[in-house]
């Protein structure tokens, strides 16, 4: 149906569109080429392919520490965001009132408000609470800014879920908790998993908050990359970037897999 008009656009428009998509994709692939360089600076490999910078990356204490710290922070903040976001989406969906619509709008704020504005506020707040440069500080900040992604994906999943199933469960004597656990959650699982993946990527990639509220004891991967790009031209950065792309693409494949299972 969508393609009912396809075929009647000019070759020029079509090739222009593909050229723009190449502009989107190709520049990113350059990091793979540079990551296997045999030189000591950022360049394409000249006389052969070398994996020295991957050895560098996985043999270096600071990089591994940062990867581990980022992983712990991303897992913890994702857990908080998924639980709070999923419950919130279910509550808003069931209420369907003006007030709950307003709540969902408010939940969008972290996506729309520039992170720099929030970073300023949370930096001040954490000075008062002595949470600067702690795991807890970064986890809380990443969790609240990750909630919107979960609310959006779970709400979308709920839009396709028949509310009568919930009523049936409640009227057949199941408690609220049982209904949630046995009826609602299993039916919206794909939405929850999508939200989980996006909240994880959000925390894993987050730089601005890490610049403000962490920096010595807690030094996340994006933070180390930021310093790496600004201060040195070490090709190890390219190896890091290549590994990150691989991780993101595999998470997206996982998401596509979950969605396709929902479809079948």
């Amino acid at each position: 149906m969508i393609g009912s008009g396809f075929g009647n656009i000019s070759i020029m428009t079509r090739s222009l569109a593909w050229a723009i998509i190449c502009f989107l994709v190709l520049p990113i692939t350059v990091v793979f080429a540079v990551s296997v360089t045999d030189r000591h600076y950022l360049s394409l490999p000249e006389s052969g392919v070398s994996f020295q910078y991957y050895r560098n990356l996985f043999g270096s204490g600071p990089w591994l520490t940062s990867i581990l710290q980022s992983f712990v922070i991303a897992c913890a903040s994702t857990a908080v965001a998924v639980v709070a976001g999923t419950l919130c989406a279910i509550g808003c969906w069931r209420l369907g009132s003006r007030a709950s619509d307003l709540v969902r709008m408010l939940m969008l704020a972290p996506i729309m408000v520039p992170t720099i504005v929030y970073a300023l506020g949370i930096y001040q707040f954490w000075i008062d609470l002595r949470l600067l440069d702690t795991y807890a500080g970064l986890i809380i900040a990443h969790a609240v800014t990750g909630i919107p992604y979960v609310v959006i994906t779970v709400s979308t999943a709920l839009a396709g879920f028949d509310p009568r199933l919930e009523q049936a469960s409640l009227s057949l004597g199941a408690s609220m908790g049982q209904t949630l656990r046995l009826v609602i959650i299993p039916n919206i699982m794909p939405g929850v998993v999508s939200g989980l993946i996006f909240a994880f990527i959000h925390s894993w990639d987050e730089l601005v908050l890490a610049l403000f509220i962490a920096g010595r004891a807690v030094f996340t991967l994006p933070r180390r990359m930021w310093d790496g790009i600004n201060e040195s031209l070490d090709p190890t950065m390219a190896a890091v970037a290549a590994v990150l792309i691989a991780v993101t693409v595999s998470l997206l494949c996982a998401d596509a897999y979950v969605r396709s299972r929902r479809g079948s």
């Binding site: 969508i2 393609g3 396809f6 989107l24 730089l207 970037a241 990150l244 997206l252």
Partner: peptide, 29 residues
């Protein structure tokens, strides 16, 4: 919108993958 379903899938891949790749990695590239 004017492409076949198959071409659409490939184009979408090209649009969505960059969307989710770290902004730092893209700036670094």
């Amino acid at each position: 919108v004017h492409s076949s379903a198959k071409a659409q899938r490939w184009m979408f891949l090209g649009v969505l993958v960059p969307l989710w790749i770290s902004v730092l990695v893209r700036a670094f590239a």
